[in-house]
């Protein structure tokens, strides 16, 4: 145990706020400041919890999409070498289901969450929050879910009801 950890444990114990540690736990976790936490927290919940400040619409989103995404996902998200992102509406119960962001995804917040984490594929993290809101708006627009000039931000995104939202069941039941 490092001196710092040892001291930390002693201090915590002394003021009685230490975790109720199991006997076999060395208790080496370091406490974090709010700033340190914010830096690693990328999770966005379906109710919008975690969405950052910023906004965008499909008009600006189109330019950002064409520059950063079109090469792999095709014009208007209709598919290129990688996943099709638009269309497929009403196809899921048919002979050839086409699962896209618009036809399949249950939550609009997932679009922002995923793009901020992982896209564009070869340069994740390169888009600003405004850009990501705009591309999210663009993907919703090309899927006929919102109007082209609708502003998408932390308030409005969780309120977008995805067309396929009610067609999911859970294979796991929490106790």
């Amino acid at each position: 145990m490092s001196m710092r950890n040892a001291l930390l444990l002693v201090c915590l114990g002394a003021i009685g706020t230490g975790a109720a540690l199991a006997d076999d736990s060395p208790g080496l976790g370091q406490e974090l400041t709010a700033t340190e936490l914010a830096a690693v927290d990328f999770t966005i919940m379906p109710d919008g919890d975690g969405l950052p400040a910023g906004a965008g619409n499909a008009v600006t989103g189109r330019d950002i999409y064409n520059q950063n995404c079109l090469a792999c996902h095709g014009e208007n998200g209709t598919g290129g070498v990688n996943d099709v992102l638009s269309g497929g509406h009403g196809s899921l119960a048919g002979p050839k289901p086409l699962k896209t962001v618009g036809s399949y995804w249950p939550y609009a917040t997932t679009i922002f969450d995923y793009l901020r984490r992982a896209m564009p594929f070869q340069m994740p993290g390169s888009l600003s929050n405004d850009d990501i809101y705009a591309v999210t708006a663009y993907l919703l627009f090309v899927n006929d879910i919102i109007a082209e000039d609708a502003e998408i931000d932390a308030e409005s995104l969780p309120q977008v009801k995805m067309p396929n939202r009610d067609n999911f069941v859970w294979g796991y039941t929490p106790e």
Binding site: T43, I44, M45, P46, L92, P97, K99, V101, Y104, W105, P106, Y107, T109, T110, D113, Y114, A118, F168, G171
Partner: peptide
């Protein structure tokens, strides 16, 4: 959180 890999993918239609 309903992430991409537990909704779009790894789900059973």
């Amino acid at each position: 959180a309903m992430t991409k890999d537990e909704t779009s993918k790894y789900s059973d239609l």
